[in-house]
Each structure stands twice: as C-alpha cells, then as structure tokens.
Amino acid sequence: MRPTKMMFAAGLLMFLAAPALHAEEAFLNYKQYCMQCHGMHGKGDGVNVPAMNILPRDHSDNKYMMSRTNTEIYKAIKFGGPAVSKSVKMPPWDDVFTEDEIRQLVGHIRTLCCEQELVRGVNFR
C-alpha cells in the first residue's frame, strides 16, 4: 500500500511542479527582456516608453488580447512586430529564446491578460 501511495504522491508532485518550474523560467525571461518596454506589470508602460512614437502592447488588456491567437503572439515574439503587421519597435527574439521558451512566454502572457478564460478552459488556438 505504502509504495503505491508514495508513487502516487511523486507522480502528483511531478505533474504539479513541472508547469510551475516553466512558469518561473517564463517569468524570469519576461522580467529580463520584456519589462524594459512592456512595463513591470505588463501594462505597456515600460521605462523606455517616453522615447517611443508607438506604444508597446498592454498585456493586461483583456479585450484586445482575447482577439489575438496564441500563434500570433508566438509569431510576434519570435519574428518581431513586422511579422504580424505591427511596428519594428518590437524586435525579433528568435536568437535569444529557444522554441520552448517562446511557448512558455506565450503562456505567461496569457496569465497576464486572460486568467479567467484560462480557468474556464478557453481554446486560444
């Protein structure tokens, strides 16, 4: 009985801890690379904003962010603004992040904008 319980506990721990680890990685990356323009709370109000003629996206803007698919956000991070018909002020980060890191960042951005929809299990495509 006991080993089964242990295994069950270990399995549960792995199931719970793995996304948490990813979440931390994604948050570190967001902090290091995104906060300079998108702001410390992701509201598109970073320290560099006074220098910009085009404002960075407000990641907490639920209405706008729900109109974007995960694929579009992924493309914007990987290939930069022009890949999704936006400004060059959003640079391409393909040389900085790995594929996994970009996917985790998309997930992190979804937690900033659309927590309720995540809980409800909306398919972001």
């Binding site: 902090k31 290091q32 906060m35 300079q36 702001g39 410390m40 709370h41 509201k43 598109g44 109000d45 970073g46 320290v47 904003v49 006074p50 404002l55």
Partner: peptide
C-alpha cells in the same frame, strides 16, 4: 536596469495618452 526602475511614478507625472509609465 531592473535594479533601477520603479513602477509607481510620482503623481505629477503625465504619461502619453493619459497613461503613466515606469
């Protein structure tokens, strides 16, 4: 830069389009 930014700007600061920034 992460050591030297603050997300609570002074009240007097007027941001672009009415928004405040770090």
């Amino acid at each position: 830069y992460l050591r030297n930014i603050n997300s609570t700007p002074p009240k007097s600061q007027k941001g672009k389009a009415g928004r405040k920034f770090d």
